[in-house]
Amino acid sequence: MTNRAPYAADPDAHGGREFANAGAVSPLAGAPSAGSGETRGPRSDFQRDRDRIIHSMSFRRLKSKTQVFIAPDGDHYRTRLTHSLEVAQIGRVLARALGLDEDLTEALCLAHDLGHPPFGHAGEAALSEAMQRHGGFDHNAQALRTVMRLESPYPDHEGLNLTWDLLEGLAKHNGPVSAPNWALAELDDAFPLNLGTWPSLEAQIAAVSDDIAYDNHDIDDGLRAGFLEPDDLLQLDFLADQWRAVEKRFPNAPRDRQLRELVRGQIGLMVNDVLEQTRANIKGFSSVSEVRDAGRQLAGFSLEMTEHERTLKRFMYDKLYYHPEQVSAAERARDVIARLYAAYSQDASLMPDEWRARLPESDPGRARVIADFIAGMSDSYAIQSCEAIYGERPMGLTNV
């Protein structure tokens, strides 16, 4: 990489891999892939991480997992997959402008939602409740469990065997973790991730890219579904200012194009704000270790944009996420997950053979395998599984 900043993560000096002697054959390099940081062939170790994520089954299943709308019928609504791709695009732009490692940033963006169960946060709430006596459930920790234990295409080790830097970023892209749940604590015991420090700038950029993407693209989907009205958006002063600028520049454009321009413009404003604020925050930093030891977030919004972003989130919860139709669909989705968990807990023969073979005799391990199985489902597979078990199709989950 050219123009690498001194505080950027370095693929030639990363923290290693959990299974250092793993030797999966690389079809692109034509030689065993590096296990402990050695780079062979045309790809860096962070590029290998990204490629392993993209080629995983867990990543492919994101195409049928809820982003905002539960099991939508329309082709144009975002799913976890399209959201992850949009996060990665924003992340690469920010990483390149800041001199960070684009490949690590992209890999983190693509992997950050791998632990989400079907039906988004509604499904997560149901699994968390079902797993309350067995350590709980959290999609961030589940993403790490997915890439370290569940997604296992290689014959000589569990998981994708990603670099320490990638795993560290997944574990704490939202900041240090002082009280890890059972999943994260177990993985940290096996391959310590220094949970008490801030992660690399690449991980911090992945987190803020996620915020930028869903803050704005959820507006786009909400308008498309008719759950948001343009006049509602104009109640927010900073969006009203942008809207007046769009109308002035494109007075004769159709309304829908003006609204899409508003969303694009807001993304641009947020990206530029992050660049300006982050550059100011990292002035004088000369290594990635200094970033981790800084004791504070370095990549993020200015104070003014932070307040705008919080206001926008409150607006979205009020108008979109807690819309009566959304709440109703979420309740039905939680019921599907709860019924699946109850069924598999009572009768393991309902699970596929490969999953039933993983079940230990007792809890909490047994409950965790059941949660792993359900968490990996797509929306449609969860609905079909519930119908197959109970003889009736869950109704009302498609709200757009």
Results as ranks from 00 to 15, higher is better:
63 K>A: 14
57 M>A: 12
326 Q>R: 14
130 A>D: 02
314 R>N: 06
345 S>I: 00
394 P>D: 07
74 G>S: 09
254 P>W: 14
20 A>D: 11
203 A>M: 05
121 H>N: 09
161 N>K: 05
102 E>D: 12
167 L>S: 13
154 Y>D: 05
257 R>S: 14
387 E>N: 14
41 G>W: 04
386 C>T: 14
76 H>M: 06
305 M>S: 04
282 I>V: 15
283 K>T: 06
311 T>K: 01
114 L>F: 04
231 D>K: 11
18 E>Y: 03
359 L>H: 00
224 R>C: 10
71 A>L: 13
87 V>M: 02
162 L>I: 09
264 R>A: 15
308 H>V: 01
330 A>C: 01
118 P>L: 03
394 P>E: 07
205 I>Q: 00
306 T>Q: 13
146 T>F: 08
24 A>S: 12
368 R>G: 09
68 V>Q: 13
75 D>Y: 08
106 E>R: 06
325 E>C: 09
48 R>H: 11
339 R>S: 12
304 E>N: 03
374 I>G: 10
335 D>F: 00
20 A>L: 12
92 R>H: 08
371 A>T: 15
161 N>T: 04
245 A>I: 01
88 A>T: 01
133 R>L: 14
63 K>T: 09
94 L>P: 01
378 S>A: 11
159 G>D: 04
284 G>I: 13
4 R>M: 14
208 V>H: 01
247 E>M: 11
225 A>D: 13
35 G>M: 06
332 R>N: 01
66 T>S: 07
30 G>T: 00
14 H>D: 06
395 M>P: 04
267 I>E: 14
365 G>R: 06
236 L>S: 07
338 A>V: 01
276 E>N: 09
24 A>C: 09
236 L>G: 05
142 Q>E: 14
207 A>Q: 12
41 G>A: 09
149 R>Q: 13
140 N>K: 10
253 A>D: 14
189 D>E: 08
215 D>I: 03
214 Y>I: 03
75 D>H: 09
117 P>M: 12
354 E>W: 03
18 E>N: 02
226 G>D: 07
117 P>L: 12
171 A>V: 03
310 R>G: 14
142 Q>R: 11
34 A>Q: 10
313 K>S: 08
227 F>N: 01
333 A>L: 02
149 R>F: 11
320 L>M: 10
210 D>W: 02
131 M>R: 02
88 A>D: 02
80 R>N: 09
199 P>K: 02
